[in-house]
Amino acid sequence: MEILVDAVLLTLLVVITLAILFQRNLFAVVLLAGAYSFLMASIMLVLDAVDVAMTEAAVGAGISTALFLATLYLTHGKEYLQPNFKFQSILVVVLAGGMLIWGMWDMPEFGVMQAPLHENTAPGYLDASKNHLMPPNVVTAVLADYRSFDTLGETTVIFTAGIGVLLILRGRKKPKKSKNKAENSHET
């Protein structure tokens, strides 16, 4: 069942990517990119990477749509054709992709228990996080405690977001004057 959903979603992803490539109207590209990120988020969720799915949906469909549109405000809504075909760039892209595929051959098979990651690294963390009085969730323990200096930036961002939310919730009461003004202008 999971295979079926994965296959359908990935096929749709390929179709949308090709459509983005051949689309010249940049508004349509923005819309298709939004659809793309929703599909991508669904795939991430089916693969059980919930946090990545959340990030993909928030960043891909939420903020980058607004950013793309803000960019389109400064530019034209239409893409011009490249006047001449660059051979070197195609070469670089093909080379880089080939190297990535070549490197993929050395990876252990997907989901195999004998992979080095599951034999050497993971058991240590699974055992140690119980004894070190860490948070009960192992992933949270690795992210927030073992890698606390790595995630210091993330924690700062989360706190900043919390402060922002508090400010928004608090600031609703004060500026009553401007709100009344807007309502009056709406009525007239």
């Binding site: 109207n25 508004f27 389109l72 405000y73 530019t75 034209h76 809504g77 239409k78």
Partner: peptide, 10 residues
């Protein structure tokens, strides 16, 4: 369609 959008954007 693209014309009216881009006109506004310009």
């Amino acid at each position: 369609l693209p014309k009216s959008g881009s006109k506004k954007a310009d």
